[in-house]
Amino acid sequence: MTKVVEGKNIVRDYHVGGGLFRPARTVHAVKGVSFSVDKGKTLAIVGESGCGKSTLARIITLIDPATAGELLIDGNKVDIARDGLTKDMRRKVQIVFQNPYGSLNPRQKIGDVLGEPLLINTDKPAEERRDLAMKMLKKVGLGPEHYNRYPHMFSGGQRQRIAIARALMLNPSLLVLDEPVSALDLSVQAQVLNLLADLQDEFQLTYVFISHDLSVVRYIADDVMVMYFGEAVEYGPREEVFSNPQHSYTKTLFAATPRADVASIKARLARKAA
């Protein structure tokens, strides 16, 4: 097995500047996290809101440098703070951001949003870029009629799919998805998860998948990492984590999952009537 991405003791601090009467302080967002993902596998990261998941995602996708620790992509050490970023690296590693609207240019039509990565990173002619963009729109459950629309004309879930489509345009080998299906209705969620599974089978894509939806994680992950206040408190194969959670936060997490079965609804209504 080849490791596509590996992190060793990754640390990230944010220094928040003080004001006139406020001292500066340091937020320890990620406190020494280690992990590795093999080719064609999926690592899911779950954890409390604010525990450092998006911060780690930005480090893996080479957007932010780590404060300390080592990041290896395809076995090679990468340090963007020192060496910058090559075109090839930029293509290989893609991210779908947690905030789809903020990451789309409001003045760019969707067709151009999808074509742009090809324009910048390849020398494909306009005709081919257009074809590929159309195909990708279909893959994520949108249609040709959406090609010329602007981002604000889409619903939340539609924009999320556009963000996923854009990340897939360059055939990345590592895709980091930050809450990619949390804004989607169940049907589209199923479509997108199936699409991700198809792509993984077809191209041996590797995913780092951040989600707080445990049923989705259980469906998609090979390995699961549970983060809590910047640390990985639990890390292992999916079945082990789900069947035998060790850390108390993981147990709390499983217990807090809302239940959608008739018996639970009846129990709640009875409590309310009492």
């Binding site: 409390e48 707080h212 997490l253």
Partner: peptide
């Protein structure tokens, strides 16, 4: 409108 999409289940529960 989708008030808890970005929240883990423990905080989702607290918000609900």
């Amino acid at each position: 409108d989708e008030p808890t999409t970005a929240l883990d289940v423990t905080i989702q529960k607290q918000i609900l």
